[in-house]
Amino acid sequence: MARLNVNPNRMELSRLKKRLVVAKRGHKLLKDKQDALIKAFLERAREGKVLREELEGELAECYKSFLLARAQTLPAMLEQALMISGAKCNLQVGRQNVMSVLVPVYTVEQGGSPVNYGLATSLGSLDVALERFAALIPRLIALAAKEKAINLMAVEIEKTRRRVNALEHVLIPSFVETIRYITMKLDEQERSTLSRLMKIKEIVRSH
Rank of each mutant, 00 (worst) to 15 (best):
S65T: 06
E43F: 06
M99Y: 15
K199V: 04
I38Y: 10
V115R: 04
S85T: 14
T121C: 07
Q110A: 10
N7K: 12
K18N: 07
E43T: 13
A2L: 10
K18D: 01
L68P: 03
E168I: 03
Q34E: 10
M1Q: 06
A45R: 15
L171T: 15
C62K: 11
Q110C: 10
P114D: 01
L20M: 10
V176Y: 00
R162P: 03
I84H: 13
A71P: 04
L140C: 05
G112D: 08
L74D: 15
A144S: 13
L78H: 03
L91T: 06
Y181D: 07
G112K: 09
A154P: 01
A81W: 10
K33Q: 14
A40H: 05
Y117S: 01
V155D: 15
T183Y: 10
V176T: 13
E56G: 08
E43P: 10
Y117H: 12
H27A: 12
R95W: 09
L20P: 07
A69M: 01
A71K: 12
E79P: 05
Q189N: 11
V21Q: 12
H207M: 10
R180V: 05
V128S: 08
L140P: 02
G112Y: 03
I182H: 04
N90L: 11
A145Y: 04
G86S: 06
E158H: 15
L102I: 00
Y106C: 04
A81H: 04
K17A: 09
N90M: 07
K18V: 05
